[in-house]
């Protein structure tokens, strides 16, 4: 039943796409099979795999930087009120800077380089990661901290077995919202200042008014991100909450 509903919904979307293509003409909205052919063409030439790969690497690198820094800073802010008071104004500034401003400034200050691109994306994701992890750090159970203290658990054991499991739901939330945010910003960064990647290809297609190619790249990338969500993020979440499922 669930599957049927899903399939029905996808079929409806395709039907609407066909109808729209008929109304607007193939130049403004090419039909689904034209886009499918374009995907096959790009895949054959190797350009699709290359650009997807480059973009995915950028997503992975900037996401990792943002999550690692965000976890450290968020934990420090959540557990220490002095650090929190010191860092909070910076956080508010960063939270409210438009993504475009950060990207443009990064390119101006560091040149049109890979580093500038990655830093710009990571800086866009960082404040949200910090806020989420800080929330988690504030909810840490002090009675478990005391337990760890009297049993003289090492810093590493405490982090790995006492603190991190309590943060897991918050990290999962930050990962979810983070991945979708990061890949969108990576495309903008590529459009503005990188010579390759999905964003660059879409930028080129835009200049040539090539809607087929825009859709071909966008759809493939959405599928890739869906696959990551289904085969990486969700299994990881199931693993970290295995004790909850069995307790039910």
């Amino acid at each position: 039943m669930n599957l049927l509903l899903r399939l029905g919904s996808v079929a409806l979307l395709l039907a609407a796409w066909f109808a729209g293509s008929h109304l607007l003409g193939p130049r403004l909205l090419p039909a689904p099979h034209a886009v499918a052919l374009a995907i096959v063409d790009e895949a054959r030439s190797g350009a699709l795999a290359f650009n997807l790969g480059v973009t995915l690497l950028r997503v992975a690198a900037s996401f990792t930087i943002a999550m690692a820094l965000g976890t450290v800073i968020g934990l420090a802010m959540g557990r220490n009120s002095v650090v929190n008071r010191l860092a909070d104004p910076w956080l508010v500034v960063l939270l409210n800077l438009p993504a475009l401003v950060i990207i443009v400034l990064a390119y101006i200050w560091a040149g049109l380089t890979e580093i500038a691109a990655l830093v710009a994306v990571a800086l866009n994701k960082l404040p949200i990661a910090i806020v989420t992890v800080r929330e988690g750090a504030r909810a840490l159970d002090p009675s478990l901290d005391e337990m760890a203290a009297v049993f003289r658990m090492s810093g590493w054991v405490r982090m790995r077995h006492v603190t991190m499991p309590q943060l897991a739901p918050y990290l999962a939330a930050a990962t979810r919202s983070g991945l979708s945010l990061v890949w969108k910003i990576v495309l903008i960064v590529e459009l503005l200042g990188r010579p390759n990647g999905v964003g660059f290809e879409i930028g080129t297609a835009f200049q040539l008014f090539d809607v087929t190619r825009i859709l071909a790249y966008a759809l493939t990338f959405v599928v890739v991100m869906l696959a990551i969500e289904t085969f990486v993020v969700q299994p990881f979440e199931r693993y970290t909450s295995r004790w909850r499922i069995r307790a039910a």
Binding site: L144, M147, R152, T240
Partner: peptide, 20 residues
């Protein structure tokens, strides 16, 4: 000075097995 403490509440880590 190695301490073994049993608190009023068990204070176990819910996400680790009994053995762990």
């Amino acid at each position: 000075g190695r301490l073994g403490v049993v608190f009023q509440e068990p204070r176990l880590l819910p996400w680790r097995t009994v053995e762990d």
